[in-house]
């Protein structure tokens, strides 16, 4: 897969970040080298090998269905720029 300038701009949009022209160039070449490494791995024959998503072998890590958290509205709201009636206020998104 080729990392084009357009692709970098697409990722910029998806990630909601703004890159300078300089950063765009650097991102393009860095992403290309990362993908190059991945492509190298792709040369290995992995027929019959299950994809690995977790490096440690734990399975079924679960908790009981119990409510142990209480109301911590104050702490939750402490991080927000603006609040109203217990809700966090953000720029208009609802139509």
């Amino acid at each position: 897969m080729e990392i084009t300038a357009e692709l970098v701009e697409y990722l910029e949009k998806l990630g909601r970040i703004r890159l300078s022209e300089d950063e765009k160039d650097r991102t393009q070449s860095e992403l290309a080298s990362i993908l190059g490494y991945i492509d190298k791995l792709g040369e290995l024959d992995t027929t019959g090998v299950e994809p690995l998503s977790h490096a440690i072998g734990h399975v079924n890590v679960m908790r009981e269905d119990e409510v142990t958290n209480g109301d911590m509205q104050e702490q939750i709201l402490a991080n927000s720029a603006e609040t109203k009636d217990g809700a966090i206020l953000v720029p208009k998104t609802v139509e």
Partner: peptide, 15 residues
């Protein structure tokens, strides 16, 4: 849940 707040013109967020 997002609710529009007509007074402030912003959106209220309830997690």
């Amino acid at each position: 849940k997002l609710v529009h707040d007509p007074l402030s013109g912003k959106t209220m967020v309830d997690f």
